[in-house]
Design a protein around this nucleic acid. Structure first.
Lengths: 343, 343
DNA sequence: CTGTTAGCGCTTTCAA
DNA sequence: TTGAAAGCGCTAACAG
């Protein structure tokens, strides 16, 4: 391994000078600097970030924990966050919680033990994630993203799901649907709880009738199961409001296989607007989450000073309903040559 | 920050003893050990992995670089690798190359500078990735996964695309298709090149006729564009062989919008078998890549000794054709309650 | 079995 | 402006 001392020796200067040249922390005689850079190039020297981090007590590294890497919504979030942080020279250490609070807790420890400068977390569970995140918040600047865990003293950047679900329901009601079913994930995380609550509120506000809500997980498979039950149950609702797009994809697949006309017999809405939402037949009407805005706000908070005297802040972004054919036969067909949208 | 010395002091022992107890590296008087553990618990001490890594010259951390986090095939690979490494107590640092060799090179440096113990790479470009990966191979144990870059002295774990494409073509020909079109990515990475080559070979071997192959990128959007051209070109081929599933999804969407009957008028095959392949209408016939086997083999190599005297090894897995409705109207409809397959 | 000591590679005082 | 020296927190070698 080539060390800074090697470079110093080759350049005929002290290690301190090499450090100064490479970090730009102080003015150095241009001639010496040139020798240092030449020596570095010659030897192929690279700074050892372990040693540098240990000494500086900063690593220019932040951690990010997401519930599931394979969920396209989270990968979009990861991409958006990664791009933003790369720009300011910060590396992201990614941890997949595998939808399991224990794996999440272990992942958090792995990150913290590596002396990260900050942490972005999308908590798996509103309650089960609290302990590990609270501990994390004590050790490092933490920002919660997309979801919150109960009682964690950290800023939150999230989406206004009340508005999101409401926009979907309003749209459906305006199109004449009055008999709705809600299919979503068990309200173990804050988004699932808020969306469920929002659906109930919207029912009351619009006077529409709701079937008993069906709660499972944010997966295609659950969408399939729930839709199968509805199909086999006989009388279909006029619309199925899904808690996320994966569920909606499963629902659409089953309805398609069963020969149910969408949106003629049943309208379907999703939530997230993942890339695949334009690919179903019919294309999926969905609530688009502002991934870039979320990532930007979260990163800004993370690079900022942290919660002030008046406690953690909460930032909510209002999502936008994207109307497609699954609720509206007259919705524009995705233009064939248009670049695929990726919110 | 609470350090090992604090724990030592609280337990009335030396730092060395604390280190021994926590790492289990040597026998320690049980009574002292108990005091150490109590003190650790009391103070909430956690080992500083920066310091530990610096001293031990090992970090129990490996890096992984993938072309694009958002591509479901790669996220499946990431998940499989992550699960395997977690089991042996190794943390994965993930870097997204954003399909850009420059970003990839920078990401590689970020990883190497963090003293990773090993590196798993899926090279973005067969040639443009060579320099950075060769340099990486000199600094750390490198294993190439899924794709190879030309001339990099590192083991490779990949898929036998000759067999994969051949199985798709044979299936189509057996079903009576003799006029085929190949739609894939520009052969800038090894998989794209090998699949293109395999398609040509298969044409010769089976005597089927091929349209001029259309090369773009491994994206839904390129699938849309290419399919639009075919549709507008007039006489459609009897089958479209796609270089990956994303392309196939785009192709299916356009054919669907154009009212073309699949597989009646045109059969379509994909490659990868991502989760969404079961969700299209019709469901997609595709070549399933053995993600778990790839991950297992790559991790085993990474944890092993590296290339021996006789140069880098190459391990090829034979993928399996999964026949669904996009090539065969009599193919079994995905069972409604079956757990979603994720290769 | 335990403690003392040295040093991983770097940055940052402090003196010159 | 530059260099010498100390030390970030940990572990391995060496004594005892």
């Amino acid at each position: 391994m080539v060390t800074m001392r090697d470079v110093a020796q080759a350049a005929g200067v002290s290690a301190a000078t090499v450090s100064r040249v490479l970090s730009g922390s102080r003015r150095v005689n241009p001639e010496l600097a040139a020798r240092v850079l030449a020596a570095q190039d010659e030897l192929g020297y690279r700074t050892n970030l372990l040693a540098s981090g240990l000494r500086r007590q900063r690593t220019d590294t932040v951690g990010m924990v997401v519930p599931q890497v394979g969920n396209p919504y989270f990968s979009a979030l990861m991409e958006a966050v990664g791009r933003r942080l790369q720009r300011v020279g910060i590396t992201v250490l990614l941890v997949d919680a595998e939808n399991d609070p224990d794996a999440e807790a272990e992942g958090l420890h792995r990150l913290l033990d590596r002396s990260i400068d900050g942490l972005l977390a999308v908590p798996v569970d509103e309650h089960a994630s609290t302990a590990a995140l609270t501990e994390a918040a004590e050790r490092v600047h933490l920002v919660q993203l997309d979801r919150a865990a109960e009682g964690v003293p950290a800023d939150l950047v999230a989406v206004d799901h009340l508005a999101g679900i409401r926009s979907a329901v309003d749209h459906l009601v305006a199109r004449g649907c009055s008999d709705l079913a809600f299919v979503s994930a068990e309200p173990r995380d804050s988004t699932a709880r808020e969306r469920a609550r929002a659906f109930d509120d919207a029912m009351r506000a619009t006077g529409a009738t709701a079937r008993a809500s069906a709660f499972g997980s944010y997966t295609v498979e659950w969408g399939r199961v729930a839709a199968t039950r509805l199909v086999e149950g006989g009388r279909l609702p006029q619309a199925i409001v899904c808690g996320n797009d994966l569920i909606a994809l499963g629902v659409l697949a089953v309805l398609g296989e069963a020969g149910v006309d969408v949106p003629g017999e049943v309208a379907v809405t999703g939530y997230d607007d993942i890339g695949f939402a334009t690919l179903t037949a019919p294309a999926l009407t969905t609530v688009r989450q502002p991934v870039d805005s979320l990532a930007e706000a979260a990163v800004d908070l993370l690079l900022g000073d942290g919660p002030g005297e008046d406690g953690p802040s909460v930032q909510r972004f209002v999502p936008k309903l994207i109307v497609r054919a699954s609720t509206d036969p007259s919705a524009p067909v995705p233009h064939r040559r248009r670049v695929q949208e990726r919110p």
